[in-house]
C-alpha cells in the first residue's frame, strides 16, 4: 500500500445482473458525495463506473466492485476497483481505442471511462480475468 495514503472502509457490490449496474452507480454516487467531489466530478466518476460495471458484466461475465474513499494528505478522492474472472483482454491497446468494440456497443466504454477519471490502471490476463482500478480526486 502506498505510504501516507489514507483509506476508508471499502464497500463492495457484486455485479451479476443488469440491476447491479444501477446499484454500482448509486453506491459510487454516495461515496463520491461523501468524499466531497464536485458535481461535475461526481457525474464523471459515476458515468465511468457505469461503463466499467457494464463491461464487467458483459465482457467479464460478472464480477465485483469495491469502492473506497482515499486521502493522500492533501486531497480526498474515490477509488473503485472492478474485478472479474472472465476471458481477459488479449489486445489491451486495441481495447482502449475509441470506437473499438466486440460487443456491439459504441466502443467508448473503456476509452471513455479512462478520460473521465484521474488515474486508470488495468491488469488483465487471457483466461484469468481483468482488474481495473480508477481514482478520482477532489479539486
Amino acid at each position: 500500500m502506498t505510504a501516507g495514503l489514507g483509506l476508508g472502509r471499502p464497500q463492495t457490490q457484486a455485479i451479476v445482473g443488469d440491476e447491479d449496474v444501477v446499484r454500482v452507480r448509486q453506491l459510487v454516487r454516495t461515496v463520491a458525495v461523501a468524499a466531497k467531489l464536485s458535481l461535475v466530478d461526481q457525474t464523471k466518476l459515476v458515468t465511468a463506473a457505469s461503463e466499467l460495471a457494464r463491461n464487467t458484466l458483459v465482457y467479464g461475465g460478472g464480477g465485483q466492485v469495491e469502492v473506497t474513499t482515499v486521502d493522500n494528505g492533501r486531497r480526498q478522492g474515490v477509488r473503485i476497483v472492478f474485478t472479474d474472472s472472465g476471458p481477459g483482454i488479449p489486445d489491451l491497446e486495441l481495447a482502449l481505442t475509441d470506437g473499438y468494440t466486440t460487443g456491439g456497443g459504441l466502443g467508448l466504454g473503456l476509452s471513455g471511462a479512462r478520460r473521465l477519471v484521474d488515474e486508470f490502471d488495468i491488469q488483465t490476463a487471457v483466461g484469468q480475468g481483468t482488474r481495473i482500478t480508477v481514482t478520482k480526486w477532489s479539486r
Binding site: L39, V40, K44, T47, E51, G112, R115, L116
Partner: peptide, 11 residues
C-alpha cells in the same frame, strides 16, 4: 454536468 461528461466521454 451531464453535457460536460458526455463530451469528455466522446459521445
Amino acid at each position: 454536468a451531464v453535457a460536460i461528461t458526455l463530451v469528455e466521454l466522446g459521445l
